[in-house]
Amino acid sequence: METVTLQDYKTSEKSWWCPGCGDFGVLAALQKTLVKLGIPPHRVAIVAGIGCSGKMGNYINSYNIHVVHGRTLPSALGVKLANRDLLVIAAGGDGDGFAIGMNHFVHAVRRNIGVKYIVMDNHIYGLTKGQNSPTSDHGQKVKAAPFGNVESPVRPLSLALTAGATYVAQGFSSNQAQLARLTEGAIAHPGFAFVNVLSPCVTYNKVNTYDFYKQMLHDLDEDPDYQPDSRGGAIAAVLEREELVTGLIYHDPRSVAYEDALPGFAEQPLAGRDITLGQEDFAELLASYR
């Protein structure tokens, strides 16, 4: 194992996040986990979306690609397929992942791509100054919905579980020790690992605050009656508590990643492989057009 320090993962960039933002906790937990696992920064690619959470890549000294709104997961799949030796992490918010990018979330889940997806879920659009997000509560009043949100929220955990996710966890940004553990589990998981993080927006969300979560969250990791090995049990647990849970919710030990299931797909990274086509192969391919 190479010696990797926290310093290796720091950048010179000053954070744009508001003081007290939940995303600091997510970043810190991720950096600590990478250091603990001894993964050098050049072996990590972070694909970030648009929004406050999308700035993640600005503050961590890995390879970073900051893409268009909502498309972190297909971009991350591209990175993984090009170089499967990389640890590929997609990071985004609830708007990026469950509004504009919802489509890709469900498909990434069912493909079981070898990407770790960390969502910083603050139940609000922060960067555009406080509109309801797809995870905002029913009735939530904001400037763009002054009479209250008439829509029901997306339930990310239930959605992932029913779509066939093989690793589902939820963390809380002020419980860094647990979040680091969940992130570590995600990294070790072959296939798509989804870590939803309840990450309060201190500026625009006056409902889903640190205090709110401290009161409401039930820690399944500490629940002796809970076993994260049954999809049905997991769905029941998150439904019962309206997703106000933390911990490892579900884990399928038989998970096979998309890139391992692709027929004939190279076991070594495509980047760096000899890509010239042999004259004999070419002649054979041409012959099929006679």
Binding site: R71, V79, A82, N83, H104, P269, L270
Partner: peptide
């Protein structure tokens, strides 16, 4: 699932050297 995914996958893959 759509062309938005197709183009961004291609961009990710090219970024990573394929």
């Amino acid at each position: 699932e759509d062309e938005l995914a197709a183009i961004t996958l291609v961009i990710g893959a090219n970024y990573a050297g394929a």
